[in-house]
């Protein structure tokens, strides 16, 4: 397949209903942080973009949302071309301008506080970071609490950014400014909005 063939293929077969289904999964996941929501999608993006992260991008990103790609994705012309063909997103030059970011390997991601955190007046003008993970359940467990969580909830994503808990506590400290994470494995998502707190003790 040529690059342009790769680029034109693999979008939603039925954009209206596919986007609605994926959105509901993201919305439910954002409303219930840490809960794992299965996403089955017919999207076939070029590697290393995974299908779930791609489906979330097709659902939410468009010409109005500057997108920033982590190094592994930014290097791939096929990935850039595919996202730009299917969503018309402009690519953000700086991470602090990104409405969305997609990161193929969270272990290498820039410090989270470098993304757009919004302002005190407009905390919504902040980056939603889509992080591709290998697993949501068999990494190191984290105990979550906060809005959307009855008591506490455990999630075990892998890989995650270095010193993630410290970074996240720092993000918590900026509230209402902050970033929101969508963790995307091959077939499921879980979200960590800025309100979610990660417990000291691992279960």
């Amino acid at each position: 397949m040529t690059i342009s063939e790769k680029i034109a293929r693999g979008g939603f077969a039925d954009p209206v209903f596919a986007a609605q289904t994926v959105f509901r999964a993201v919305m439910d996941a954002m409303a219930r942080p840490g809960a794992v929501h299965g996403v089955s999608t017919d999207v076939r993006p070029p590697s290393p973009l995974n299908a779930t992260a791609a489906a979330v991008a097709l659902t939410l990103a468009d010409a109005d949302t500057p997108l920033w790609l982590g190094a592994e994705l930014a290097r791939s012309d096929a990935v850039r071309g595919w996202l730009s063909f299917h969503t018309a997103v402009p690519f953000a030059e700086f991470i602090s301008h990104a409405g969305f970011a997609i990161v193929a390997n969270p272990a290498n991601v820039q410090p989270l506080s470098g993304f757009a955190l919004g302002t005190q007046e407009y905390p919504d003008r902040s980056t939603t970071i889509i992080m591709q993970v290998e697993t949501l359940t068999s990494g190191a467990p984290m105990t979550l609490s906060g809005p959307g969580i009855k008591g506490s909830r455990t999630i075990a994503p892998h890989p995650m950014p270095g010193h993630f808990k410290t970074q996240w506590r720092d993000i918590n400290g900026h509230y209402p400014r902050g970033v929101d994470l969508v963790l995307a494995s091959e077939n499921a998502i879980a979200c960590l909005p800025r309100t979610t707190r990660i417990g000291e003790r691992e279960v």
């Binding site: 959105f23 659902t59 939410l60 905390p123 919504d124 209402p176 309100t195």
Partner: peptide, 24 residues
């Protein structure tokens, strides 16, 4: 239209992430 839905969906997600904050 789908573009409008996306715009509203993004606002809903930010609303959920910042409970009680009014997203324009």
């Amino acid at each position: 239209d789908e573009q409008t839905k996306r715009m509203i969906r993004r606002a809903i997600l930010k609303g959920i992430a910042i409970p009680g904050y009014q997203v324009p």
